[in-house]
Structures are given as structure tokens and as C-alpha cells.
């Protein structure tokens, strides 16, 4: 026992968790760090960009409205930094607002998939047997539905609304994640630390939360960051078809659609600015996700 008292006084050594290791590896990856900075800048733009302009996204500049094609280009004099849209509204304000919607759609989709998909998949995989069978068949059935078609129908029947868009995204985004989480769970479930927890009598929900989910999280986070851009593209596609968010609200997809429609008049800024934000953000998400994957799973490189 004297031995115990000896070490009792010694300083407790800090450990390096796997997360800390991953963070160090991530910060050594230049492309990933650059992408992270881009994403931070884009988010700041979405959150605070509106403060830099006197214009709102729905106000029409009556002075210039008749001459958008000739006078509506980007200019500091008129305070339309990105020019005007075809209706004479400030494009900068509209891009800020579109960025908000697009990012929100990406993030909500990713969050739903992380929370619902991970817990659903981990539960199915861990409990196994008939419950697993039923739960995964439900996923199969939902996946077999041509969701784009269903969503378009919903939007047509119930009218275009951002709420409907979120419902649609919520319905589909977690399905892949549930499958991924289940697959990973099956392999983690047979690890001895889970057996040890079962043998000690730890309850099933606690095992899932404490032992399974934290070990899934690496894969889940990577998949979620890669899901954000695909959700954004999904929304953009819907908006491109003219079924997305409702005016005066807008999104990257809707803005690109609008700009593309004006291309033949030479008002390229209308396409260029939203397209620029759309592209750099998507690239940044992909590189960021890639960097996370390398950092979280060094064996997989």
C-alpha cells in the first residue's frame, strides 16, 4: 500500500486520444486545411456578408432596373458588388442569402443522416437477428423508391416550400448512412472490447452509445462531410428544374439557373458569381472530407 501512496502524489499523465492524433494528421494535409479555410470563409460570408451591403435580397433597384444588361454589372459606385439579377435586385445580397439556404440544406441533410442514420444502423447491426432484418428491409424499400420523382410530385402537389425540401432531404439522406453504420457495427460488434462490456453486464443502449458509436464516428464524419455537397447538388438540381426554394428566397442552384438563362445576353456575372461560390464550396467539401478520411483512418491510404 505504501506503493500506492507514492504514486498517488505523482502528476497524472495526459494521454493522447485517437482524436488528437487525427487532428495532428489533418493539419499536416495542406489541401484539407486550405479547404477548411475556404469553408470557414464561405460560412462567414453566408452569416455576415449581408451586413456589408445596403441592399436586401428582395429590393429592386428602380434606377437601374430598365438597363440591367448594360448598367447592372458589378460596380462599387452603385454598391452592387456582384451586379444585379435580371429583375434588378442586388445579386450580392441574393448570393449571400442563397449561400445560407444551400449550406443549411447541406448541413441539415448531413445532421439528419448522422443522427438518424448512425443510431438506426448501429442498433440494427448490434442487435442483429430479426430486428436487423426488418430494419434493413425498410431501408431497402425506401431506397428503391425513386425519391427524386416522389419529391418532385410532393413539390408539385403541396406547392414549393423550403419545408417540403427539408422533408424530402430528411427522408433520403440517412439511408446510405444507416447501411454504412450497420456494416461498421457488424465488424465492431465482434471486437473483444464489446464482448467485455457484454460480459460485464453493460446495458445494450449504453454499449451502442459508449462503445459502438464512438468507434463508428470516424467513418460517419467522413461520409457526412461528403454528403453535404451531394445534398447541395440535390437541392440545386431541384432548383434548376424550377421546383426548389420559393421566391424571393433563393439558393445556389436557383441563382445558377437564373444566370444560365441570361447567358445569351452577355450578363455573365449573373452566372459567374453563384457558380463560383457553388464550385469552390463543393471542391472544398470534397477535399475536406478526403483530408478527414486520411486523418481518421491512416491505414486506409
Amino acid at each position: 500500500m505504501t506503493h500506492v501512496t507514492n504514486v498517488e502524489t505523482a502528476e497524472v499523465v495526459k494521454g493522447r486520444s485517437l482524436w488528437q492524433d487525427a487532428r495532428a494528421r489533418f493539419f499536416r494535409n495542406k489541401a484539407a486545411v486550405a479547404s477548411m479555410i475556404v469553408l470557414i470563409l464561405v460560412s462567414l460570408f453566408a452569416l455576415f456578408g449581408g451586413m456589408l451591403t445596403p441592399w436586401s435580397n428582395e429590393e429592386i433597384d428602380w434606377n437601374l432596373m430598365g438597363d440591367v444588361r448594360t448598367l447592372g454589372g458589378p460596380s462599387f459606385e452603385t454598391k452592387h458588388y456582384f451586379g444585379l439579377d435580371p429583375l434588378g435586385r442586388d445579386l450580392y445580397a441574393r448570393v449571400v442569402q442563397g449561400t445560407q439556404i444551400s449550406l443549411m440544406i447541406g448541413i441539415v441533410g448531413a445532421l439528419i443522416s448522422v443522427i438518424v442514420g448512425t443510431l438506426y444502423g448501429a442498433t440494427a447491426g448490434f442487435i442483429g437477428g430479426r430486428l436487423d432484418n426488418i430494419m434493413m428491409r425498410i431501408v431497402d424499400i425506401l431506397m428503391a423508391i425513386p425519391y427524386m420523382f416522389v419529391l418532385i410530385l410532393l413539390l408539385v402537389v403541396f406547392g414549393r416550400s423550403i419545408f417540403m425540401l427539408f422533408v424530402g432531404i430528411g427522408l433520403i439522406s440517412w439511408l446510405d448512412m444507416a447501411r454504412i453504420a450497420r456494416g461498421q457495427t457488424l465488424s465492431i460488434k465482434n471486437k473483444e472490447f464489446v464482448e467485455a462490456a457484454i460480459a460485464t453486464g453493460v446495458s445494450t443502449p449504453k454499449i451502442i452509445i459508449r462503445h459502438i458509436v464512438p468507434n463508428l464516428l470516424g467513418v460517419v464524419i467522413v461520409y457526412a462531410t461528403l454528403l453535404v455537397p451531394s445534398m447541395i447538388m440535390f437541392e440545386s438540381f431541384i432548383s434548376f428544374l424550377g421546383l426548389g426554394v420559393q421566391e424571393p428566397l433563393t439558393s445556389w442552384g436557383a441563382l445558377i439557373n437564373e444566370g444560365a438563362g441570361q447567358m445569351r445576353y452577355g450578363t455573365l456575372w449573373m452566372l459567374g458569381f453563384p457558380l463560383f461560390f457553388f464550385l469552390i464550396s463543393l471542391f472544398a467539401f470534397f477535399f475536406f472530407g478526403d483530408g478527414l478520411r486520411d486523418a481518421l483512418d491512416p491505414k486506409d491510404r
Binding site: K191, F193, G201
Partner: peptide
């Protein structure tokens, strides 16, 4: 268990790991 490393949850500190049975019961 047989595999010493695999029998410890990599995301928990050894203090948490050793305490788990005690906290469970």
C-alpha cells in the same frame, strides 16, 4: 480476452475502461 489491445475500447482512457464494470453495477 486473447487480443489485449482489441479488448480495450480505443476511444476510452484506461481509467474509464477499468471503471466501467464498477460504474455499471
Amino acid at each position: 480476452f486473447q487480443d489485449p489491445l482489441a479488448s480495450l475500447n480505443p476511444r476510452m482512457t484506461i481509467g474509464q475502461i477499468v471503471a466501467e464494470p464498477l460504474k455499471t453495477h
